[in-house]
């Protein structure tokens, strides 16, 4: 042979799957929810989202280029996903400087300080969110009401989330039936007509995204389904014990960050277990912790904390929960 051929170990073909394609599909899956939030919150949603995505990408680029002195890999799209998720987890009237600080914490502290994509133990967007929640509790818990003020950004009309209404009401000794109309109906909650973070409210849009992620095989069903099941069963039991002080399971599934958390945050590759059994344990843990924080904790909402706590167990789960090996159930002969 006179020409130089290539020699490489097998396999000689590749599926064509790539990190950027996976991230692109996640971005696509988030688009229905983004469209809904644009419709509900208008200009505020647009500003916060663009700001978060932009600052995440820029921070990642700057840190990789100047602090880590490496080749920036922003083209893999992971910073875009982090930015989107961060924006989806904050109110649409959040002042711009808080968004930028949150992005810096998410990318700089939660992701890059551990070595960048693939090495961070905690979900960057959630770390950013929890940081903002603790540092700026007032701004982070004033929720613009959907549709009410599409053209205002900082001065949008605000109101409480259903979970906050519930927590507040119970604290004042009211029963759920007494709260009555203050709590939105299931259908309203499914459509997202309630106060909340800009991307977490519309359950139907998030479920469309879930279907897309499953269809493109970006994620498997294990984590979301295990979280949904655990929350439904746990709150179902509490509801059956006393429906006057405990909300029904559908309420719990549709409110707060359960949908976005289970579908997009908990399934983050880097911070979730690698095999189905581990995924189930992870999902059940998130479900239990979420309900415990919601029902007995000081915060009305607990998905973020639940996911972050379970993130910490992922290395353990990966280490001790092994996939079932081929030929394991049969005893070795001789």
């Amino acid at each position: 042979m006179d020409k130089q051929v290539i020699v490489s170990p097998s396999p000689h073909v590749h599926s064509g799957e790539s990190t950027s394609r996976l991230m692109f599909n996640v971005v696509l899956a988030l688009m229905p929810a983004f469209a809904v939030s644009l419709y509900y919150f208008g200009v505020g949603a647009l500003i916060v989202t663009l700001l978060a995505v932009g600052s995440c990408v820029i921070f990642e680029y700057l840190i990789q280029k100047f602090l880590m002195k490496g080749n920036p890999t922003i083209t893999d799209g992971s910073a875009i996903v982090t930015g989107l998720l961060l924006a989806f987890n904050v109110p649409s009237n959040l002042p711009w400087h808080i968004v930028v600080i949150g992005s810096l914490v998410a990318i700089g502290v939660a992701k890059m300080s551990f070595g960048g994509l693939g090495s961070n133990p905690f979900n960057p967007a959630l770390v950013g969110r929890v940081f903002m929640l603790i540092s700026f509790p007032v701004q982070m818990t004033s929720w613009p009401l959907p549709v009410a003020s599409r053209l205002q950004y900082l001065d949008a009309v605000t109101g409480p989330t259903p979970l906050a209404i519930l927590k507040e009401g119970l604290k004042n000794g009211e029963t759920i039936s007494q709260m009555g109309d203050k709590i939105p109906s299931h259908m309203q909650m499914f459509m997202g007509l309630m106060g909340g973070s800009l991307g977490e409210i519309a359950a139907f849009a998030l479920l469309i995204g879930f279907a897309w992620l499953l269809f493109t095989k970006v994620i498997t069903w294990h984590i979301p389904v295990s979280i949904f099941t655990t929350i439904a069963v746990f709150t179902g039991i509490l509801w059956m014990i006393n429906p006057e002080t405990n909300a029904d399971p559908i309420f719990h599934l549709l409110t707060g960050g359960v949908m976005i958390g289970a579908i997009f945050m908990a399934t983050d590759y880097v911070t979730s277990p690698m095999n189905p059994v581990g995924m189930w344990i992870f999902g059940i843990g998130i479900g239990l912790l979420t309900v415990i924080i919601r029902v007995w904790g000081a915060y009305p909402e607990g998905v973020s904390f639940a996911i972050l706590i379970m993130n910490a167990f992922v290395p353990l789960l990966n280490r001790y929960v092994k996939p079932k090996r081929f030929g394991e159930e049969v005893k070795r002969n001789g």
Binding site: M1, Q4, V5, I6, V7, S8, P9
Partner: peptide, 22 residues
């Protein structure tokens, strides 16, 4: 003279187990 191009994991050990060299 190089007669082939190697395109695999950047490790001499891996390359040796694959073939004789480029």
């Amino acid at each position: 003279k190089r007669i082939v191009q190697y395109d695999g994991a950047s490790s001499c050990k891996v390359a040796t187990s694959l073939y004789s060299g480029d």
